[in-house]
């Protein structure tokens, strides 16, 4: 990254992995600013970041609801048939006195992804109409801090492995919930890639000042 001419008016930014100070230039669409000494991504330039994030997050909400309503997998063997949902998968370990594991599965596969989606919608929908919602700061912080603990992708890998493990035991039938879960994963990845927290904080700051 090089210093632009009108550097004094640009916001200061410190690399969060090596603390090097920069003046952050306005970035072109699809461009990255990297720290020149440690390589960390400092900021991303993105057109329509807010609209894209909202579209993907709304899609994610719909898919989240489907994934939580319908069975993920079904099992057929010797005339018996059974299935499980995301919620029953999280809950089952309580019966075996492993409630700590149950809570962990529930938080990382259901509650944190939901809080992330709802937090983004609650804060970004009004911002798009140039309005600052009440409790913007705590809600947006919840939306940001639940992202690293939302593990839909890892859960998906767990489903794949279980299908392989069960192949010699019974016939595994994918449920509607599984397809929704795949869609949810794709929508979440797209939403996370288009979210630009820095520009959201700046926008919220500007709206607060104008109020």
């Amino acid at each position: 990254m090089h210093e632009p001419a009108n550097a004094d008016r640009l916001p200061l930014m410190a690399c969060h992995e090596c603390d090097h100070l920069y003046r952050l230039p306005n970035l072109a669409d699809r461009s990255l600013a990297r720290c020149q000494r440690c390589g960390t991504i400092l900021a991303r330039g993105m057109k329509n970041s807010l609209d894209k994030t909202l579209a993907y997050t709304l899609t994610a909400l719909v898919l989240f609801m489907i994934a939580n309503t319908y069975p993920i997998l079904g099992l057929k063997a010797a005339g018996q048939e059974q299935h499980y949902t995301l919620f029953s998968g999280a809950l089952v370990l309580v019966q075996y006195n492993l409630w700590e594991v149950s809570v962990t599965v529930f938080l990382t596969s259901i509650l944190f992804p939901l809080l992330h989606i709802l937090g983004l919608l609650y804060t970004l929908l009004p911002l798009r109409g140039a309005r600052l919602p009440r409790y913007f700061i705590p809600v947006f912080k919840v939306a940001l801090s639940t992202l690293p603990w939302s593990m839909v992708g890892v859960y998906m890998l767990g489903v794949l492995v279980s299908i392989v493990k069960l192949a010699d035991l019974a016939t595994v039938v994918p449920g509607l919930g599984l397809y929704a879960l795949v869609g949810l994963l794709l929508a979440s990845v797209a939403a996370a890639a288009s979210l630009d927290p820095l520009s959201i904080w700046q926008l919220a700051d500007r709206l607060r000042r104008e109020r």
Partner: peptide
């Protein structure tokens, strides 16, 4: 990504009761 084993156990236990 190591959480995959924890998810796997919860999925298998919830699903397999034949």
């Amino acid at each position: 990504w190591s959480m995959v084993d924890v998810f796997l156990v919860s999925i298998l236990v919830a699903l397999v009761d034949l």
